[in-house]
Structures are given as structure tokens and as C-alpha cells.
């Protein structure tokens, strides 16, 4: 038993992968048309936002911090993007401008969080809780009620194919490449050192402050990507979008084997963790659990997964 635990150390994502395969098979049994391209694509479309947010959240948690404002960042980016597109008239140039504005918004939110926490030494949990309220308030300011449809060009591209391959699959592959890219930068090692033992990182001469800010900006960036995907899915603006993303992204990160204490884990694991969460809600949906029990089941599984993940990823 201890030998098993030993060999799994640092490869907790293998457990997550096993869980994912099992869930996939259960899902297949409940929903025989799961393997048709259209169903797979629609599943991926639903899962993608959480996958992206969870990837960003991983970097913050690896650095020993946490970001509870991701949901509000998603909402803010969404309303900024749709508003900019609406203002510029919905041509291709306008759409690109809207996307750029959204990405900049996400980065700015991350920078704001990072400066408060790494430079002004605010507590990460309550600070991102507070900034989440602020970002959410700003989203309501930009767009008070849901609406403001995006031009067809936007959502058709998102729902369609590029070079014969579904756009969502492109984005998924892009996310994998981004993970691989970051994993090979010295930054990630420095970030994990910062989250692992901050005094050691400091003593070794690492610039701990900018490293933590960088992690928050990555979280903001990936939240922005998630918001752009959600915008493609809903084809409109919604200032209350992404409410539950903070908790589910943390759950995905923990499920993927990343320690909440920081310093240990991987973004790839979180990607698998997010897919597991998506699969769980699929299974709950198709398992004919009465509607009124679905939220309870999801909540319980999330809590159990959190507890289990914390136990498995502990030293």
C-alpha cells in the first residue's frame, strides 16, 4: 500500500486519468451516442471553460496562493468583449478588438490581484474574494443585464470548424501546447519553489514578488480565454456568468493532484480534473437522477473529491 502511494507520488494525475476513463465508460453505457463526433464536440464545448480556468488556477496554487476572483474575471471579460464588439459595429476588426480588450482585462485583473497580494502583502484568500466582488460589480456596471448578442461571425466560428477541425478542438490543443510551453520555462520551477518553501526560494535569490504576480496574471489570462469561449457558447453577454467557476476550478486543481499548500502538482492534472468534473455532471444528468437531487449530488461529489484530493496529494 505504501509502495503504491510512493510510486504515485508526483503522478497523482494517473489516478485522475483512471477516474476519467472509468467515468467515460460509465457515460458511454448511459449515453450510447457519446462517441459520435457531434456529441463529443458538444461535450468539449461545455467542458472547455472550466478546463481553461482550472489551468490558470493551477499556477496560482502552485505558487502557494489562491484566486477566488476567477469567476468574476470571466464575467467581466465577457461583458467587456461583447460591449467593445457592439461599440465597434461587429465587423471582423471589431471582433478582434473585442477579444483583445477582453484579454487585456483579464491580465489587468490578474495584475491587480498580484500587486495587492505579493507587493502589499494582503492575504490571498480574502483579497481575491474582495476583488472578485469588485470585478463582479464592474461587470454589472458595463452590462447591467444579460443580453447584447455577439455577431454571428463570432459564435459561428466558435461552433464551427477551422481547416476541417472543430474550433473547440483547436482551442483544447492550444491549451495543451500552452501548458507544455510554460512547463519548459524556468518560471515554472521558480514558481513551484516559491510555493514550496518561500524562504528557500528567497534565500536562493529568486524574485518571489514578480513570480507570484506572474502566476496571478496567468490566472487572469486563462480566465479571459475561458470567458471568450463562454461568449462563443452563449453568443451574448451576461454579467453573472461564471458564478461557480472559483470553487469548481479549485476542485479541478485538487482533483488533478495539485497540493493546495503549493509547490506540488501540474496544470495537466488540472486539465484532467476539469474533464472529470464535466464527466461527473454528464453521468449525473444521464443517470436519471431526479432534477432536485442533481445539485446535491454535484455538491457532495465536489466536496468528497476535495477531501480525497487533499488526502492523496499530501506528503
Amino acid at each position: 500500500m505504501s509502495a503504491l502511494r510512493d510510486s504515485l507520488r508526483g503522478r497523482v494525475w494517473l489516478v485522475t486519468l483512471a477516474a476519467l476513463v472509468t467515468l467515460f465508460l460509465v457515460n458511454l453505457a448511459l449515453q450510447p451516442n457519446l462517441l459520435t463526433p457531434n456529441v463529443l464536440k458538444s461535450n468539449l464545448t461545455v467542458f472547455l471553460p472550466l478546463v481553461l480556468v482550472a489551468i490558470g488556477q493551477t499556477y496560482v496554487i502552485l505558487g502557494g496562493d489562491i484566486d477566488l476572483s476567477v469567476g468574476s474575471i470571466v464575467a467581466l471579460v465577457n461583458v467587456v468583449t461583447v460591449s467593445v464588439i457592439a461599440m465597434t459595429g461587429g465587423e471582423t476588426g471589431g471582433i478582434l478588438l473585442g477579444i483583445a480588450a477582453g484579454i487585456l482585462t483579464g491580465l489587468a485583473c490578474g495584475l491587480f490581484n498580484g500587486v495587492l497580494i505579493a507587493i502589499l502583502r494582503f492575504q490571498p484568500i480574502v483579497t481575491t474574494f474582495a476583488t472578485g466582488i469588485i470585478f463582479g460589480g464592474l461587470a454589472l456596471r458595463v452590462l447591467p443585464t444579460a443580453g447584447l448578442p455577439v455577431p454571428a461571425g463570432y459564435w459561428r466560428t466558435y461552433a464551427g470548424n477551422v481547416l476541417g477541425i472543430p474550433t473547440v478542438l483547436w482551442i483544447f490543443v492550444f491549451a495543451l501546447l500552452a501548458i507544455a510551453f510554460i512547463a519548459r520555462r524556468p518560471f515554472l520551477t521558480h514558481l513551484m519553489a516559491t510555493g514550496g518553501l518561500r524562504t528557500a526560494a528567497f534565500q536562493t535569490g529568486l524574485r518571489v514578488g514578480p513570480i507570484r504576480i506572474g502566476a496571478y496574471m496567468l490566472s487572469g489570462l486563462f480566465s479571459a480565454f475561458a470567458a471568450l469561449c463562454l461568449t462563443g457558447e452563449t453568443a451574448s453577454g451576461d454579467p453573472l456568468m461564471g458564478r461557480l467557476l472559483a470553487l469548481s476550478s479549485i476542485s479541478a486543481v485538487v482533483l488533478g493532484g495539485t497540493a493546495l499548500a503549493g509547490g506540488r502538482g501540474s496544470a495537466f492534472g488540472s486539465l484532467l480534473g476539469a474533464l472529470v468534473i464535466g464527466m461527473i455532471s454528464n453521468v449525473i444528468f444521464f443517470a436519471a437522477i431526479p432534477f432536485e437531487y442533481q445539485t446535491l449530488t454535484t455538491g457532495l461529489i465536489t466536496l468528497l473529491a476535495l477531501a480525497g484530493g487533499v488526502l492523496v496529494s499530501r506528503r
Binding site: 513551484m192 519553489a193 526560494a201 534565500q203 536562493t204 529568486l206 509547490g263
Partner: peptide, 15 residues
């Protein structure tokens, strides 16, 4: 205090 327990030997040596 100079080693990060979560990192590998190589990562620590060349941190």
C-alpha cells in the same frame, strides 16, 4: 532552509 522539498534534486541544485 535553502532546499525546496517539493522540487527534484536537479531543480534544487540549479534553482
Amino acid at each position: 532552509l535553502s532546499l525546496v522539498p517539493q522540487l527534484s534534486v536537479a531543480d534544487n541544485i540549479f534553482l
